[in-house]
């Protein structure tokens, strides 16, 4: 399309921010409604039809509250942390192609950029916890660091496997390779990596851990750590953390869709690409919510054991298997 560059820039900036904001607000509603249905409750019903105005009411409440900066905290870091947590999610979305014609930036190292910014998110939560001058927040920060180190490794190993198969780090090219029927999706490319479905499961598990979602939400294990790193945050400071969690879930699911589930490619050849991308994205988001309300929180050593003793060996195995099959065939 021939939109002048500055206008295109502004449009994508506004679009990305609106997408992230809307998703963060309404995924809270989906989460509450979903949790309720899994527990056979009705969920929010009072504010608007089916509780649809609940996120707006919540946002108004959070916005109207005083932003308290407790005495003794590291003021700069304390104020910067919520912004640092929200920004990477938006930066990551800039590289993601939503459909054939809809992507903000067509980067040839998009995957590297997504992972580079993805780790800022965890670092920012750590900064928030560290600067809060609160024992719960500091414990939470320490947990986040070790959890992040443990799960970054299998995730990157899995992505290396995928990059070996596709031969590119450009998300658009990765999706274009998966054109056609659904057995062309990377998820089912067992000819180049016999363990591809396992790779996807590892990616998904690591994504849950990286975004601090249950059953890996050690960072804000409310029964042990009050609210973890967010304990000292009031009003919209807390609200931004909350939004960032969902924004990161969306980014993670979008990445999984692009890498494994064929992005905007339609499995049956009807309807526009954007529809299919969003459908796959939200099915994954629903699965994330589904997992959260099915499994209890793991213990911390269980979480580290899972990564170091199971996910890393298995992802190394897929890496080796992929290189062997690629060399042979």
């Amino acid at each position: 399309m021939n939109i002048p560059e500055p206008l295109r820039l502004v449009l994508f900036l506004v679009g990305t921010m609106a997408f992230v904001g809307l998703n963060a607000a309404y995924l809270v509603w989906v989460e509450r409604k979903g949790a309720a249905r899994f527990q056979r409750r009705p969920g929010p019903t009072e504010v608007g039809p089916a509780g649809l105005l609940q996120p707006i009411a919540d946002a108004l409440k959070l916005l109207s509250k005083q932003l308290i900066v407790p005495s003794g905290v590291d003021g700069t870091l304390f104020r910067a942390a919520p912004i640092l947590v929200m920004m990477p999610a938006m930066m990551c979305l800039a590289t993601m192609p939503f459909s054939e014609a809809l992507s903000a930036r067509d980067l040839n190292v998009a995957l590297v950029m997504v992972f580079a910014f993805g780790s800022i998110n965890v670092m920012a939560i750590m900064l928030g916890g560290w600067s809060s001058r609160n024992k719960y927040a500091i414990i939470s920060a320490a947990r986040i660091v070790s959890q992040n180190i443990a799960y970054e490794i299998p995730m990157l190993l899995v992505v290396i496997t995928l990059v070996m198969v596709t031969g590119t780090m450009n998300l658009r090219e990765i999706v274009e390779q998966q054109a056609g029927a659904f057995w062309n999706w990377n998820l089912f490319r067992v000819l180049s990596n016999p363990l591809m479905p396992v790779t996807f499961v590892i990616f998904f598990v690591c994504m849950l851990a990286e975004t601090n979602r249950a059953p890996f939400d050690m960072a804000e294990a409310e029964s042990e750590l009050v609210a973890g790193a967010f304990t000292e945050y009031a009003g919209m400071g807390f609200g931004v953390y909350f939004m960032a969690e969902y924004a990161n879930v969306v980014v993670g699911c979008a990445l999984a869709t692009l890498l494994f589930l064929g992005g905007w490619q339609s499995p049956i050849g009807v309807l526009p690409g954007l529809f299919w991308f969003l459908l796959k994205l939200y099915v994954l988001v629903f699965t994330v919510i589904w997992v959260r309300w099915t499994f209890p929180r793991t213990q911390f050593y269980g979480l580290l054991n899972l990564s170091w003793k199971l996910l890393i060996p298995v992802s190394l195995l897929t890496l080796v298997l992929t290189s062997i099959t690629m060399k042979l065939f």
Binding site: G34, A36, R37, F38, Q39, R40, R41, P42, T45, W290, V291, W293, T294, F295
Partner: peptide, 18 residues
């Protein structure tokens, strides 16, 4: 299996009396 059990509950009617 656990996820299958919760999904079955998801599609059943809520038991809450409002």
């Amino acid at each position: 299996t656990g996820m299958r059990v919760t999904l079955q509950q998801f599609f059943r009617k809520p038991v809450t009396v409002h």
